[in-house]
Nucleic acid binder design. Structure first.
Lengths: 225, 225
DNA sequence: CGTTGGCCTTAGTCATGGCTAAGCTTCTTC
DNA sequence: GAAGAAGCTTAGCCATGACTAAGGCCAACG
């Protein structure tokens, strides 16, 4: 309906891809959004004309206004996810898709109501920070490799490297996808595998696999659900 | 996005217009949906082809399957309204618009979660009945408009239409909410206002307002409290 | 009767936001 | 230096779901 929605979808993608530390280009956005490259190309031109971003050497950079807009969209998205999880018990793996579907229909005002009802949360159930209203939210946590995660903590997966397609396919088959979370159980000694739990199942991951996984260690106070 | 959404919007309109006791025709639907007549015409043909409705003498009748589909859509809509009101404190006059915006994004499953969280409510905040899952929900006795109420009688309000958000906000501010009752004092002549008493206060209601109010005329023997 | 007005449909247009095909740089590789 | 391969853009197409214009039908009324 409104042209806003499409713009916002792309702004959010830019914000998120940037947050993964990946270069923000036509191709990466097309892959992220699951659309063809020309669609991205068109939209980027329009967003550039609207003064929301600039491009240099193929890289997309949000302008200050673009950043504010994108952060507001991401903020809404993460508030929706948090609300769906805490108020309606939607399981974490379903959150992203559900929130995506709802995003267009949730006004700023409604998001503010959710924020209030939730007690002004600072992180969503994936462990991603919720930008504050009116800020650029650019202090996004940079993802670190799972290798660095201490055991006994939850780890929020934001990225699975595609360097090893077969290996990453296996990880995905385990439920280790961007947006999922796993519990870091224990590290076997002498270079043994890392034991993690995903969706209640326990898996031993070799270094090869562990090195493909990036994300954020969730704050310790979070209780395992 | 999906073609479902449009079909569902029209099915819901048919269900609701029928519920008001108005004839379900291209014109009334166009007015209700605020679209041009040909748009309705096209969609009706498609819904007819899909076996969801039939037409006789200009009147639209839902088939059994159409009825089920429509009731499911209405059910979702009213669950959303109830949820927005009870869980997030969205004021009644804003409910319809907010729910409309969300409807496309709310899956059956999510609606079921809302239903559960709300304790399986039977009516939405407008006083409209919430069809049960899997039923046609059309056996509800629909209330009659206040317009038809004789003067000197008590009228029990079960429903305030959400067609005119500002007008219904005013009615609510007067205390004319579902569950309230008013005394129909007198009808001023020559199309003048209808005088009603609510909570001991006397108000003159224009036709615009009166037409938004539905309920049940209380039996005459009932003594004014 | 014939005209007028309401109602509905058919025909054709437009905006949106995807898509594929194809061309153009540029960077690598032999 | 030529040949590819990536990545990006341009050009042109399609589906959806609105719209306006215009015509058919019918009933009421002068």
């Amino acid at each position: 309906m409104s042209p806003q929605n499409t713009d916002e979808r792309y702004l959010r993608a830019i914000f998120q891809v940037r947050g993964l530390g990946e270069p923000v280009t036509t191709t990466t956005l097309a892959r992220w959004l699951d659309v063809a490259a020309p669609s991205v190309s068109n939209r980027l031109r329009r967003l550039e004309d609207a003064g929301l971003l600039s491009r240099a050497e193929g890289e997309v950079r949000l302008t200050q206004e673009g950043n504010l807009r994108a952060a507001a969209v991401v903020r809404r998205h993460r508030l929706i996810e948090t609300f769906l999880h805490r108020a309606l018990g939607v399981p974490v793996p379903e959150l992203h898709e559900s929130a995506e579907a709802l995003q267009d229909g949730v006004s700023e005002q409604l998001a503010a109501r959710m924020d209030e009802a939730l007690g002004y949360p600072t992180h969503d159930p994936h462990g991603d920070p919720i930008p504050q209203a009116g800020t650029a939210g650019d202090q996004e946590a940079w993802p670190e490799p799972l290798t660095h995660a201490p055991s006994g903590r939850w780890f929020s997966v934001t990225r699975i490297s595609d360097r090893e397609p077969e290996a990453s396919a296996y990880l995905i088959s385990l439920g280790l996808v961007p947006g999922s979370r796993c519990f870091v159980a224990e590290r076997a000694p002498f270079g043994g595998p890392l034991w993690v739990e995903v969706d209640g199942a326990r898996h031993a991951l070799s270094d090869t696999l562990v090195n493909l996984i990036f994300g954020v260690v969730e704050p310790a106070r979070w209780v395992r659900r």
